[in-house]
């Protein structure tokens, strides 16, 4: 367990100087001609998308347009029929140990939190580092406490997920993903299962991550977050990327009729 290459301290992204995200152009996540069907339903249609290191991309679009499937395909929770997805230059392997290793580099935050129900908050955060990275328990605990503090969870480490509010659970889920020192983080509607008063506490943590230079792909309809933190907005409709632009341009001056139509619907309430 302890022979994994982890004796050097994993870089703590909390320690990075918080400066406005300036995307370097080294491509980190590259999708080429990705196609995916569910039976007869063509859910992802020729998706081409490149995300640079340090870039924050917000994916937006009507329900059923394939946003979740796109996220899930990127860490291969969902298979796809054709095309390629590369993470940091490596193509997604098939099921097996190699894939598990690659998934550890891609953090994922789910709409429904999915914290491990039978494990304490601290155990939720340490499980991956111990089992996957081979970190010893003391180091993992220490780091878990740092990360929990970073997402604003203090004195709750020995509780079980069900004892926390939704906003707290989602912040723990973010800490759990961060504990793996991922190269990129995927967020699939991280605030849509939350009560309104808890949305901001989660978005604040995400904004902090973006400022610290984390590469992020975020499915969300929170336009405030997109304007504040995103470098780019990707608009999906019916399995296609219809439009890509800066948040400012996209929200004030959408080009496609589908995007205009969609924005008019979410802006009116």
């Amino acid at each position: 367990m302890t022979d994994a290459p982890t004796d050097t301290n994993p870089t703590d992204s909390a320690a990075r100087t918080p400066e406005p995200a300036a995307p370097t152009h080294r491509p980190l996540v590259v999708l080429e001609k990705v196609n995916k069907h569910f039976g007869d339903l063509h859910v992802l249609k020729d998706i081409d998308l490149t995300i640079g290191e340090g870039e924050v991309v917000v994916v937006i679009g009507p329900s059923g347009s394939g946003k979740s499937t796109l996220c899930r395909a990127i860490n291969r929770l969902e298979t796809f029929e054709s095309g390629t997805i590369q993470i940091d230059g490596v193509s997604l392997p098939d099921e097996g140990k190699e894939l598990a290793k690659l998934r550890a580099d891609v953090g994922m935050v789910f709409q429904s939190f999915n914290l491990f129900a039978h494990k304490t908050i601290r155990e939720n955060v340490t499980l991956g580092p111990i089992k996957v990275r081979g970190l010893d328990k003391d180091k993992a605990n220490e780091r878990a406490d740092q990360l929990l503090k970073r997402v604003g969870i203090t004195e709750q480490a020995d509780k079980y997920p069900a004892q926390l509010s939704g906003g707290q659970q989602q912040r723990v889920a973010i800490a759990r993903a961060l504990a793996m020192d991922p190269k990129v983080m995927l967020f699939d509607e991280p605030t849509s299962a939350l009560d309104p008063e808890m949305i901001n506490e989660v978005l604040d943590v995400m904004t902090g991550l973006a400022k610290d230079g984390m590469t992020m792909i975020v499915v969300t309809h929170e336009m405030g977050f997109a304007r504040r933190a995103a470098n780019r907005v990707v608009f999906m409709s019916e399995g296609r990327i219809v439009e890509e632009n800066t948040p400012q341009e996209f929200f004030t001056n959408p080009k496609s009729s589908r995007a205009k139509d969609f924005l008019s619907k979410i802006l009116t309430h």
Partner: peptide, 22 residues
């Protein structure tokens, strides 16, 4: 719930690990 196993796989646990741990 399927989300438990997905979260386990997402942090890099293998099939066997996600089965035995989660």
């Amino acid at each position: 719930s399927a989300g438990q196993a997905e979260a386990a796989r997402a942090i890099g646990l293998t099939f066997t690990q996600s089965l035995t741990q989660i």
